[in-house]
Amino acid sequence: MSFRVETDMHRRRRSQNVGVAVCLVLFIGLVAVLSLVKITNTGPVEGYDHAPRSSVTEEASQ
């Protein structure tokens, strides 16, 4: 059930809210896709941690 009669103000506020929500969702999606592209294009990432480093081990075996 509705508690209040909908006024022009409600309509305007909803237009703002829905517009901003759609923009935010699209922005999140875009950042996600961009991150995916950037990460896949960078090539293998090697960290200085406890895992064996492929470049070092390959050089050693040659």
């Binding site: 103000m9 305007r12 237009s15 703002q16 901003v20």
Partner: peptide, 8 residues
Amino acid sequence: CDPVFGDY
């Protein structure tokens, strides 16, 4: 004033 999204 209470703008609609299109105004932005």
